[in-house]
Design a protein around this nucleic acid. Structure first.
Lengths: 133, 133
DNA sequence: TTAAATGCAAAACGTTTGCATATCC
DNA sequence: GGATATGCAAACGTTTTGCATTTAA
């Protein structure tokens, strides 16, 4: 059915390389457009199936909390993002992971906290420069 | 066109009341289903138009960073959420707003930081109890 | 050899929009 | 009275899925 497992194909391998090889936090369509240049008849469905599979296996991260379409991140280490409200670009931040707050919430609220997502937004340094008026 | 302004209608007033009157961080469809019970022929388009208008006017908050469909929050004060990965319920957290980190990122990265979103996830206290094995 | 992944195209999903009618100010 | 919001239904962009064929193991 629609689920992709652990078998390695040239499509899956390419998709993984593309996501791992960029810092642009790409959308599925970006991956599709890039992939077509090396496998011209790859389908968008295959891109989605493999992005989901790779995310489930923990090899990439899906970040579906910033805007309309999902973005993917090849860096699965704990880190935070800054999203520019003007140009939409997603920057990585070198901010130290806030470890203590998970315990704080867990103790205060009695939920089992698996982790947190933290995202900053505003106007990025590039857009600040082009500031018109 | 598709944009709703400042005129008050019974639809808009009802939608505002519904969002303000619940702590369930409802989706547009939840608001629609509730609204139909009082205005049977209200349309889903009107619900979306008014939710967008109310969010633009700062009277409610759109939270489109947790899952597939947008949720809305009648509490516009700065606060954080815990999202249960099992049941999907969104809890408010009494955690103190982290004010200092915006400045930290702004100074470190030279972006203009307007704010941040912080969301915790895991298994909520209700789902923990029903834990099978 | 055969279970699993692919390409293709259609469908599903949440959301937006064009238009004629109704409504608020 | 006139601008604006509504209901309706069609359209939109993203993502998923059914199916016949191809491919990795």
């Amino acid at each position: 059915m629609g689920v992709v497992g652990t078998r390695m194909t040239k499509q899956k391998s390419l998709i993984l390389d593309l996501v791992k090889g960029t810092k642009c936090h790409p959308t599925a369509d970006w991956v599709y457009q890039e992939a077509r240049q090396q496998i011209p008849d790859i389908s968008l469905g295959t891109v989605y199936r493999n992005l989901n599979a790779l995310a489930n296996q923990g090899m990439i991260r899906e970040m579906n909390y910033a805007g309309t379409s999902s973005r993917y991140d090849g860096d699965v280490s704990q880190h935070y993002h800054f999203v520019c409200q003007d140009c939409g670009f997603v920057y990585d931040l070198p901010l130290e992971p806030l470890k203590a707050i998970d315990d704080l919430v867990e103790n205060q609220e009695n939920h089992k906290v698996a982790g947190h997502r933290l995202e900053f937004y505003g106007r990025c340094k590039s857009c600040k420069i082009q500031e018109k008026q």
